[in-house]
Design a protein around this nucleic acid. Structure first.
Lengths: 221, 221
DNA sequence: GAAATAGTGTCTTTAAGACATTATCCG
DNA sequence: CGGATAATGTCTTAAAGACACTATTTC
């Protein structure tokens, strides 16, 4: 450990520091629409009550750990794969003081989000007014998720598992991707794009109507 | 300004805060190779003396401002377009204390980097041992720059302006892209990919040898 | 003319999209 | 059988890469 002095002779402790927060856009699919999770803030009770789940970074903690902790404590969601998106750093973004926020993206199936009075799912395309820059964070997260879903079959495991073993039909997979993309996708092109990353299980879905569909699984690799 | 208390009744000021730094990979082209700028640290004089230019965030400052300030003060570079890359947050990444670093990418022509004893350009493919996680930051920056150069002609203005008006030949443009990509690029495919984003100036280069080449300019849009 | 460089033509492959057609189930 | 859904075939277009060829300059 060398002397921690800089060019002006000041030590690390002399610098004013910002508060560092994480805010997470938890995206999911509900009723075939891409939705984002809002939580009710505990310290206010007005129009700004709903916001993205977030927290301040604790000592010794990584950003991913802080995201996981905040989702568990504030929304009852056990988030598994937080992805760092961007630091929002406008000095006046939070009127409580100098707070920077590292925005994250988390993706879970809707059935893993507890339906409490403190949790609220809203359509990602019709986000209400939110405090801070939480709307910008949501837009950032939606774009990141759409890129992630462009050429890989359901990388974040959003498909509702109709089959107990987790296999799915191409129709179910496509409807999931359409919800993420926010637009219809041509079925034949979608099939050809995705089929290379899927394994034919040889089994068929118990069709409700029409021809039974082949059940696929993701490629192990 | 509402009461800034959280669920546990603590105010914002009660939270321990990390130090927040910015570190910037300044990429440039020298002798047709992609290079990164290292600066000599003022507080040490050993093998860890060379590192990426960085600084701590000052109150009221944006991250981009801190990058611009650190490049001006530490390397004499007037950086114009810092791009935020990623937050490096390993709690033990800096043995001086709890320091998170927001990594940035800056791209300038080599002639804008002063050739002082405190500045050193090294090949991005043969980076020496560096303190902290500065090597990871460089790798992150190189990947970002390569993506940026994939389908757009010289978006960061690296082409050496042989012509006073800033126009260039396709050969000059391609050699710039080859330096960024770190591999040769097929000339005919490169031409066809880029020509849609270029304007033919109608003028020809004063060729040293061979057929004079058409001079192009970037599309205004 | 020889060397060097610029620029074009053509062929193959691949992938996307549009659209039609066939296949197989349920009622 | 008729409706609904699954799956495939075919055609067009576009773009990349490989490669050969032509064009224009300097030496």
């Amino acid at each position: 450990m060398t002397a921690s002095r800089d060019a002006t002779g000041r030590s690390l402790e002399d610098y004013p520091r910002p508060s560092l927060a994480v805010d997470t856009a938890v995206l999911t699919i509900k009723d075939r629409a891409l939705c984002v999770l809002l939580v009710r803030a505990v310290d206010v009770d007005d129009a700004t009550a709903w916001r993205l789940p977030g927290t301040f970074l604790h000592p010794g903690e990584t950003l991913a750990d802080a995201v996981t902790r905040s989702l568990r404590d504030k929304a009852g969601v056990t988030g598994l794969h937080p992805e760092q998106l961007h630091v929002f750093d406008d000095p006046s973004r939070d009127d409580r003081g100098w707070v920077l926020s590292v925005a994250h993206l988390e993706v879970v199936r809707a059935d893993r989000i507890p339906a409490t009075a403190e949790n609220r799912l809203v359509s990602a395309s019709e986000v209400p007014d939110l405090p801070f820059d939480h709307r910008d964070i949501i837009d950032f997260a939606v774009e990141a998720l759409r890129r992630r879903y462009e050429s890989t079959p359901d990388p974040s495991d959003l498909v509702d598992p109709a089959e107990p073993d987790g296999s799915f039909t191409l129709r179910e997979l496509r409807q999931t991707h359409e919800a993420v993309a926010g637009r219809p996708l041509p079925p034949d092109t979608f099939r050809r794009t995705m089929q290379g990353s899927l394994v034919d299980t040889g089994r068929l879905s118990l069709g409700r109507r029409g021809k039974p569909a082949t059940l696929f699984r993701r490629l192990p690799g």
